[in-house]
């Protein structure tokens, strides 16, 4: 029964909002007719816009390199064989290989090194440069002191644009590193445009399969903290060095799993 003295409310609210504490799903959104009301519609549009912007945002190589150098890391700036974002998105094979000039740069660096490193870090934009900008250096700040204290010999940090996970294998191979860890922007979710993944490979070389990697996923402010992620990675690295392997065999004991999100 409509009361003519009360203005008609165009949105029918749902009376089960209390269920939201059991799930992050977008429940009890209400309806305008049968359709999505304006407020939840725009909230969705914003979440998608942030995810899209994260995918398209260029990696600030100069800024990240500068941050790394002030902390004393030797840094090298590289580019994958995918020349631009559109090609990168359609040709994952190109994102897994270095562009020829980058490969030469890296080879020259390796030739001048006194000894091949035990461990080389790679930072790649992946599907979210925002994840790198917000997490990569802060995460290194957590993990590097632990590793240096444990006697690890670290190689140069490679900073790669238009990178997929497997590009770490080629970089590790050129450097002659025993282990490579690539920190990479994961595929943005609607509420996680800033998620960083860390992938570890023992004996990196071109053609290593995903089964030979370990992954720590969802490293970000609202997800796995930098400190907790560093703890996990330090454990995996020690085990990988001790047992001379990575991947499924290591994964089972460490309790981490490979996500579907970034390859």
């Amino acid at each position: 029964m409509t009361n003519p003295l009360v203005p008609h409310q165009p949105v029918v609210a749902n009376h089960w909002e209390t269920l939201r504490r059991f799930t992050a799903a977008r429940i009890a959104l209400g309806r305008a007719g049968g359709s999505l009301p304006t407020a939840p519609h725009l909230a969705f549009q914003l979440a998608h816009a942030q995810a899209r912007d994260a995918v398209q945002l260029p990696l600030d190589q100069a800024g990240v390199a500068s941050d790394l150098q002030t902390r004393g890391y030797q840094t090298v700036r590289l580019h994958s064989a995918a020349p631009d974002r559109a090609t990168y998105l359609q040709r994952p094979d190109l994102g897994r290989r270095l562009a020829e000039p980058s490969r030469e740069t890296l080879a020259a660096l390796a030739a001048h090194a006194a000894a091949p490193p035990e461990l080389a870090f790679v930072i790649g934009d992946g599907l979210s440069a925002r994840a790198i900008h917000e997490n990569a250096v802060a995460f290194l700040d957590q993990i590097a002191p632990r590793l240096l204290a444990a006697g690890w010999h670290l190689g140069p940090v490679s900073l790669v644009a238009q990178a997929r996970v497997a590009i770490g294998d080629e970089i590790g191979q050129v450097l002659g590193a025993a282990i490579v860890v690539i920190l990479i922007g994961e595929r943005p979710g609607l509420s996680s445009p800033d998620s960083l993944g860390a992938y570890l490979t023992y004996g990196p070389r071109i053609g290593v399969t995903d089964a030979q990697r370990n992954c720590i996923s969802n490293i970000r402010a609202a997800g796995l903290s930098h400190e907790a992620a560093a703890h996990k990675l330090a454990y995996l690295l020690d085990e990988a060095r001790r047992r001379k392997l990575s991947g499924v065999l290591l994964k089972d004991e460490a309790g981490t799993r490979l996500p579907l999100s970034a390859d």
């Binding site: 799903a25 977008r26 959104l29 007719g33 049968g34 969705f44 609607l190 509420s191």
Partner: peptide, 23 residues
């Protein structure tokens, strides 16, 4: 709910979308 699959991290049709297309 609201097109947002919070487990598989992709977007598909919502309950509201079905009401729209049926209407």
């Amino acid at each position: 709910p609201g097109s947002d699959d919070i487990m598989l991290n992709y977007q598909t049709t919502s309950f509201h979308d079905a009401l729209y297309v049926r209407q």
